[in-house]
């Protein structure tokens, strides 16, 4: 038990505190009530950021920490969305047991998909997971299950319990998703810092060596996929609750690419990076859409390629690499400024 927080822990606490009072700050700044208008809109933006942040973080557990490149992560996100939608709408379950079964189904799904696709590695794994995700995408679109999934229209108007309805009780939904993202971050940090997490990183750095040291790498990769899959499924479930629907697009390639973008832009191999990336992408997408209209995905793609080419470590990675030299540079500049004022 530590009795002192480190500086980064203080920063995290300050961030969460800031996010807790954020709706009221906006409300004060705009003079509009917290439950409507501009404050409500920005709560909505941040809710999406929280949900996407968890999704991106789950992706980074696979890609950044275990070194597994998956192109089928939408599979878990979408299945989570559909599971909770179907359970709430057609089975009439309550939200608690629905979320619990999302977890159970995600565990089973990640184990099956993981066992099948881990027979290959590297880019083959990426292709195979892509194929699995596409299979579920096609099944979601299939007209055979229209009464359950709504086929290409998707599941509409999922009955979210009134106490956390994203339309009428938005502030409460905001705090629920904020709490969800915080808990998921703490859990993920726990996993990453545990001995299991160290083995995952060993697999990322040198799989052969990890297996020669006596670790059953398949087991650890399966653990990584399962942890990541459960987190993604929960994010998907919250996404369905927030949108009040689940359509085939949540299972599509676009969803996976989104996770990849957030992870790459934020910084691979850190937990906070992808969460930051989620915020950047959500806000950047919003502003690009405002300024450039329908052509914004094109700009987005170009920005993405430029980042991959010139900023491969993302925001957090580049900061970690350069922050020391930047700080030194600014310190030197401020010193020379002070000297200039002292002896002009």
């Amino acid at each position: 038990m530590r009795d002192r927080f480190t500086s980064s822990q203080w920063a995290g606490l300050a961030l969460i505190g800031g996010l807790i009072i954020f709706p009221f700050v906006i409300s004060l700044l705009t003079g509009q009530p917290v439950e409507s208008g501009v404050p409500k809109f920005w709560q909505g933006m941040l809710i999406q950021v929280f949900i996407l942040a968890v999704f991106a973080m789950s992706y980074d557990i696979l890609m950044g920490y275990t070194g597994i490149l998956s192109f089928g992560h939408a599979l878990f996100f979408g299945t989570g969305a559909y599971t909770i939608g179907i359970l709430l709408k057609h089975a009439g379950w309550d939200i608690g047991s629905a979320l619990l079964s999302v977890i159970v189904i995600a565990i089973m799904q990640s184990l099956i998909v993981g066992l099948l696709s881990l027979r290959v590695s590297g880019v083959y794994f990426a292709m195979v997971t892509l194929a699995f995700a596409q299979m579920f995408f096609l099944l979601a679109e299939a007209t055979d299950f229209r009464q359950w999934t709504g086929a290409e229209d998707g599941l509409q108007s999922i009955p979210v319990p009134a106490w956390m309805s994203p339309t009428t009780e938005r502030l409460r939904f905001y705090y629920v998703t904020l709490g969800f993202a915080t808990i998921m971050y703490l859990l993920a940090r726990q996993v990453v810092n545990s001995p299991t997490g160290r083995v995952m990183m060993a697999i990322r750095d040198n799989e052969m060596r990890a297996s020669v040291l006596g670790y059953n790498t398949l087991t650890f990769k399966l653990i990584a996929i399962t942890v990541s899959g459960v987190m993604a499924a929960l994010a998907g479930a919250f996404n369905a609750l927030w949108n009040l629907n689940a359509n085939p697009a949540v299972l599509g390639v676009g969803t996976t690419i989104n996770a990849l973008l957030m992870t790459i832009i934020g910084g691979v191999g850190s937990l906070i990076g992808p969460m930051l990336g989620a915020g950047v992408i959500q806000l950047l997408g919003y502003w690009l859409n405002v300024f450039f209209g329908p052509s914004w995905p094109l700009l987005f793609g170009i920005v993405y390629i430029l980042i991959v080419l010139f900023l491969p470590y993302g925001i957090v990675g580049t900061w970690r690499l350069r922050s020391a030299s930047w700080l030194a540079m600014w310190r030197e500049r401020s010193r020379s400024l002070i000297r200039f004022f002292n002896h002009p």
């Binding site: 990849l260 995905p297 094109l298 993405y304 390629i305």
Partner: peptide, 20 residues
């Protein structure tokens, strides 16, 4: 890995260009 990521970005750009 970044080669694959770039080609994935090109899918995005190519599709949007054609749409445009």
């Amino acid at each position: 890995i970044y080669q694959v990521l770039v080609t994935l970005g090109l899918v995005f750009v190519g599709t949007e260009l054609v749409k445009g």
